[in-house]
């Protein structure tokens, strides 16, 4: 049994809170937030120790791991404070607002050998993992292009008042939505080193981007497009899709299905020439406690197992999230200003 705590009781923090609290191998001993509303609810009904000062929480409790789900601008200082006390950290995405901070944190975990993970939950979806296997086995042949897309209904009107409507706090579609897609792109086909023709578009928001469009180029000549829009009400919830084109086939993959087109049969993978469809039901491992998608439970279960085993060889490490932060910065620099 390990002891854990959470900073931040927003949407992700609460969801993590429920999943950790229901986990058989973890004790959730303390939570920290600035809002008394959620804090009092947990104090009253769940019996966790509640704090408004995260330093005090980390100093007063003997913790094995910490979950950071505060607004992005606070990630770096909170993560650092925990690492200095030898506490393993699971941090929400995106990782850090300043590249220098991300770099420093990667260095600290390397030296201290602490488990470190970032909440890019798509990495725990059966469909995207299956696509990665197909790519690694070279089923698609030489890959020449990809598209990474995400759409959802977050900002649909001209108003807004949380930290997500302020880019200096890590708000906006690029940080919140596009980061997921960029992380997936790195996982599947590699990290782009050039962004060209990038557009950060305001649609309803006054201060942040509601859509991101960019052409991404890799060292090896592979190119792709990023198309992300969080002001699209034709989607009921966030929907992420990756299309990969290779000389021997093409794959269109989202959270629910992986559609594979092959030019020739592939007996080893039991795939035939033409279209093949694999569904998430075939590709998903069951979880012990389900809240809102297997991937959210799986990523936490995975982190807890790594903390118990003191195994720092984990996916979604700070290092991979730092790579994503760098691509975010690259797109920002290329776009120059909000269009």
């Amino acid at each position: 049994m390990i002891n854990s705590a959470i900073i931040g009781l927003g949407k992700m923090g609460l969801s993590h809170c429920a999943i950790i609290n229901a986990h058989k191998d973890a004790n959730l001993v303390a939570v920290c937030d600035t809002s008394s509303f959620m804090l009092n609810a947990l104090k009253k009904y769940s019996g966790m120790a509640c704090y408004t000062d995260y330093k005090k929480m980390l100093d007063e409790n003997k913790l094995d791991c910490l979950f950071v789900a505060s607004p992005t601008k606070y990630h770096a200082e909170m993560v650092k404070y925990a690492l200095e006390r030898n506490i393993s950290v699971f941090c929400e995405k995106p990782f850090a607002l300043k590249i220098e901070d991300a770099e420093e944190l990667v260095k600290i975990v390397d030296e201290k050998k602490l488990v470190n993970q970032v909440g890019y939950h798509n990495r725990f979806l059966g469909t995207f993992n299956y696509l990665k296997q197909l790519i690694d086995k070279n089923l698609l042949g030489e890959i020449y292009h990809f598209t990474g897309e995400a759409y959802g209904p977050v900002v649909l009107k001209e108003k807004g008042g949380t930290w997500r409507s302020n880019s200096s706090e890590g708000g906006g579609c690029l940080y919140d939505y596009a980061s997921h897609v960029l992380n997936l792109i790195s996982f599947l086909v590699g990290t782009p080193n050039q962004a060209i023709g990038s557009i950060l578009k305001r649609i309803y928001s006054k201060q942040v981007d509601d859509a991101v469009y960019s052409n991404l180029i890799m060292d090896n000549g592979l190119s792709g497009q990023l198309i992300v829009n969080w002001s699209d009400e034709t989607y009921r919830k966030m929907s992420t899709q990756i299309t990969v084109l290779g000389k021997k086939g093409k794959v269109v993959c989202d959270a629910t299905e992986c559609k594979i087109y092959l030019k020739e049969d592939c007996k080893e993978e039991n795939l035939t020439k033409g279209w093949n469809i694999k569904y998430v039901t075939d590709l998903t491992e069951p979880v012990d406690f389900y809240l809102r998608g297997e991937e959210y439970s799986s990523q936490i279960d995975y982190f807890i197992k790594h903390v118990i085993a003191k195994n720092t060889d984990n996916v979604n490490s700070f290092k991979t999230a730092y790579e994503t932060d760098k691509v975010i910065d690259m797109i920002k620099a290329n776009a120059g200003r909000l269009s």
């Binding site: 927003g10 949407k11 809002s35 509303f37 959620m38 959802g152 209904p153 977050v154 900002v155 807004g160 008042g161 949380t162 997500r164 409507s165 919140d176 009921r236 919830k237």
Partner: peptide, 15 residues
């Protein structure tokens, strides 16, 4: 639930 979940992202829990 999505009505509330999407609203929380934009307005926060109290909002």
């Amino acid at each position: 639930a999505h009505k509330y979940a999407n609203a929380v992202t934009e307005l926060g829990i109290i909002g």
